[in-house]
Design a protein around this nucleic acid. Structure first.
Lengths: 344, 344
DNA sequence: TTTATGGCTGCAAACGTTTCCACTCCGCCG
DNA sequence: CGGCGGAGTGGAAACGTTTGCAGCCATAAA
């Protein structure tokens, strides 16, 4: 393996000059620059990552902590993050802590403290203040996505208002019996948005003087399967049936649509369904939803991080609210005229 | 930031001893070990990643190259890889090249050559021999998943035989008019398995003397949306309708089921559908499929890589075939008795 | 008592860059 | 015409570990 020394020899230059020529930092005559480049190319020289990081203190590496890489929202964000990082010439070190608290703990207290990343993006992770403090002590910038980080920058959507908007959309159509599919408790551990969206739903209901029936916000786990199972239970029950469902994720909404079909309910005539997220699959089902642009949020997070890294402003802009788009398709309509059968 | 020097001073030991004590390599008296540990803990010492990598030549970091992190198969494999790596104390550097050839090229010819990873896992990527040669020159082990890598280790399932099995399952049920949903051409660029599965399908058909009608293997793009669109086109056409569909992915199979429902076809009475992969969602649809244990393949790849790294065997075991499981659920049955209407 | 043995230990040399500093030119301004 | 500044260069000191080597001191064997 050729080192910078070999390049210097071959180019007839000093190591220092070659380093400057290849990195683009510092003044180098164009003649020297050419020579250095040529020699490096001939030798197939690639600078040692560790040596240069050690000497410069810059890693060109961003750590990303996610609760799962398998679910739609996270992999969407990841796509945005990874594409933007590659373009910027940065590595992306992935810490997927889906295996539970053990991994979460070792990542936060071991892996991430070894100063091998220049910054951290935490996706939908509720970090404690102590955890943030420790991270900030080692890495300049941290940005959170989908959840505020006390003391660090973050980018998020307004889950509360948007959930209220979604609910209001149904209310304005004339619905009064609106159920809500939300996150399960296991999910919640590290993740505040299910709760936030649920509160948005409750507020909209209350503001319109509508009852939030206890049986009508149902934990699912944000997946199609979960939404399907919960909606089956809901729609199959002998109690009065809702005329609309607001699901806190598109996946659960799709599950609800599938369940409704099982019962022969036509969407949107017998049942309106609105989701939340902007899942590509929503198109197939004509799902009305709120598109939160997960992918773009990832890109944005990277840009925030990198600008805070390059500019020595030290800390990154405090908090950015990402504008979500209301997407009205064909899964929501006015409620059925005949107040549907009230069994029993 | 405390360095090893500070720890040594505090513990009243030499730097060398502290290093050995903390890393566990080399002989250290238990008394020294205790002292070193205590001092390190008190100072909150975390060894510098780059310095130790530079000195030791070991990175404790694996590079993973994937064509996408957003689709089911890849994110499943990633889950397995990431969990196993964290347990082993390794970092995972993710190179997601879904953005196309530009990223693919810079990752393979730039990012990965800077010796910052100890090994590479390439998922479903068709690497050229030249690319593999360059990688092997820098990193000892490389293992591929879901695609053979000439000259490197790989772990894969037997796509050809399994696709034939799936097709034969339908044939044995009595089906003769069997359509196949396969990958699209854009997808194919870097990925050999759609073609392989298609050839398995064709072989099984030929072996049973059945016609492979040109209009009946249809490109989709491995997604639910793609499968849905293709199946709609297929089932809605005026031509003779197949009684069974073999989809090269579960997602496409699910799309086909949704499309069939649109046409009022009952699964499996009017139409049998078999998938391929082991997608969790298959359960909801009662999808008969071949579970290829994507997640476990990821774990296995890591173990192969790490054992080739720790043992200085140099190269990793050549090629492992992962056993897939045939999962018969309720989406396949004997074909309808009345040879269904042949329109036109 | 002497000599081998072997576990512990510390010194110092890597590892391969980046970057500070000092130095030499050269052109330009006063 | 002298001094000044700035571009270009090279030497050498970091950066913070790991590890080869050699020395040391017990203990066991002769």
């Amino acid at each position: 393996m050729a080192g910078i020394k070999d390049v210097a020899e071959r180019a007839g230059l000093s190591i220092a000059t070659v380093s400057r020529a290849l990195s683009g930092k510092g003044p180098v005559s164009s003649r020297s620059r050419e020579r250095a480049r040529a020699a490096a190319a001939e030798l197939g020289f690639v600078p040692s990552y560790h040596a240069s990081s050690l000497a410069s203190g810059r890693n060109h590496n961003i750590g990303v902590v996610v609760p799962s890489v398998h679910r739609w929202y996270f992999s969407s964000v990841m796509e945005g993050i990874s594409a933007t990082l590659i373009d910027a010439g940065y590595d992306l070190t992935l810490y997927n802590v889906s295996e539970g608290p053990k991994h979460r703990h070792s990542v936060l207290n071991d892996f991430l403290l070894r100063k091998r990343v220049d910054g951290v993006i935490a996706v939908a992770l509720k970090l404690s203040e102590a955890e943030i403090r420790k991270l900030l002590a080692v890495h300049r910038p941290i940005v959170g996505i989908g959840g505020t980080l006390p003391g660090a920058a973050s980018i998020r959507i307004n889950d509360f208002d948007l959930a209220a908007d979604a609910t209001n959309h149904l209310i304005q159509l004339g619905h009064t019996r609106i159920a809500h599919l939300t996150g399960g408790s296991a999910y919640e551990q590290d993740f505040e948005l299910p709760g936030t969206r649920q509160r948005g739903y409750e507020k909209a209901m209350r503001d319109s003087g509508l009852a939030v029936r206890p049986g009508w916000h149902i934990p699912a786990d944000f997946t199609i399967q979960g939404g399907y199972a919960s909606a089956r239970a809901l729609l199959g029950s002998t109690a009065e049936r809702p005329t609309a469902i607001f699901a806190a994720s598109d996946e659960m909404a799709i599950g609800a649509i599938l369940a409704a079909r099982d019962f022969g309910l036509r969407i949107p005539y017998d049942l309106s369904v609105i989701g939340f997220d902007g899942h590509e699959l929503g198109e197939v089902f004509g799902l009305t939803t709120i598109d939160q642009g997960a992918r773009d949020q990832g890109s944005l997070a990277v840009n925030m991080l990198l600008s805070g890294l390059e500019g020595d402003a030290g800390h990154v802009a405090a908090e950015a609210e990402y504008p979500a788009k209301f997407l009205i398709r064909s899964s929501t309509a006015v409620p059925p005229e005949d107040s549907p059968r009230t069994r029993h």
